[in-house]
């Protein structure tokens, strides 16, 4: 096995799941939206990409279209539940993910059924080694990750970010201050879904084939682990979470070839994931990294003024 190839492949996965973690962080971490159907929007992005690339659209248009279609689905599906409690949204979106997978599984003419669709890679340079190919993919995935990260970072440190955090902390108080919570929630949900759709497109073109079996609820759960372990409402934290979980998954995959266990390792892996989540919820609900404080100009001015007053007093 080519170790370098393996490492590069791992990097691509960290990048794609990093985007998903950033997007769930916007929804859950900053806005308190329980998206239990993350995989649905990932699927929408992947299938949109695959279908559009088959009719010959250039890859960047396919990626953008995947994100847009996912955003529209995100809006439509969240609308009935956004005014209600967090649990209604969780149930509806989780159910939506199952239904979508059912549709792509059943509709052979559209989505290839169980056999799925084959996808051409975004950028293919003829006659290069797999390593160069992977490097191209890494560049593509990480530039998308960078865009998402910067958007999330700017948004969460803006006045808009303060509003969504306020809605997360106390919906009624935020509404009393004149903030339309349903509107803000819908916007965040659309943005989060768009990012998930983008990640789906990248995933489809990287794997070059997608099947319904790739989009099981376990994907949603994995992204939740990344966010919870890394630290909700901390964009750097969830990136670390994404990297740790991906490395753990790879490690477990390698280890099972060398260690004899009484339990089938593929079962054990998910049991451990579940235990890990419970441990985090019990002993460190804030994750590895605490919520990052808001950085804005106004706050800096206040802090500066405070220090001056202190200085004069002393």
């Amino acid at each position: 096995m080519d170790l370098l190839l393996y490492g590069l492949d791992l990097l691509v996965f960290i990048g794609i799941f990093g985007i998903l973690a950033i997007s769930l962080n916007l929804e859950f971490g900053f806005s308190g939206l329980a998206n239990f159907g993350k995989v649905a929007f990932f699927l929408v992005g992947a299938y949109t990409y695959a279908l559009l690339s088959q009719i010959g659209l250039p890859f960047y248009l396919c990626l953008i279209a995947g994100a847009l279609v996912a955003a529209i689905f995100g809006l439509l599906i969240s609308l009935p539940a956004l005014r209600l409690r967090a649990d209604y949204l969780a149930i509806v979106v989780l159910a939506f993910g199952e239904i979508l997978r059912l549709i792509v599984k059943s509709e052979d003419w559209l989505a290839g059924g169980d056999w799925g669709l084959s996808v051409s890679p975004a950028i293919s340079i003829t006659g290069v080694s797999p390593r160069v190919d992977l490097l191209v993919n890494i560049a593509l995935v990480f530039s998308c990750l960078l865009i998402c990260f910067v958007v999330a970072q700017l948004l969460s440190n803006s006045p808009y970010g303060r509003v969504i955090r306020a809605i997360r902390e106390d919906e009624v108080a935020a509404e009393a201050l004149g903030k339309n919570r349903a509107k803000y929630k819908a916007q965040i949900f659309m943005l989060g879904s768009a990012m998930a759709g983008l990640a789906g497109g990248l995933y489809a073109q990287y794997l070059q084939a997608i099947v319904p079996m790739l989009f099981l609820p376990i994907i949603t759960f994995t992204i939740w682990i990344m966010v919870l372990v890394g630290g909700p409402a901390n964009n750097w934290g969830v990136l670390v979470g994404a990297a740790l979980v991906e490395i753990f998954e790879r490690g477990a995959n390698i280890a099972k070839d060398y260690i004899a266990l009484p339990i089938d390792p593929s079962n054990l892996q998910y049991i451990l994931f579940g235990v890990l989540i419970l441990l985090v919820l019990f002993y460190r609900p804030q994750g590895l990294f605490k919520e990052s404080p808001i950085k804005t100009r106004a706050l800096e001015v206040v802090r500066h003024a405070r220090e001056q007053v202190k200085g004069e007093g002393g």
Binding site: G32, W224, N267, L268, Y270, I271, G274, V275, I277
Partner: peptide, 17 residues
């Protein structure tokens, strides 16, 4: 409530697998 729901999903995976 979100933490409790996540805990129930975690429990679900522990039991299922």
């Amino acid at each position: 409530i979100i933490h409790l729901m996540v805990a129930s999903i975690a429990l679900s995976f522990i039991l299922r697998y």
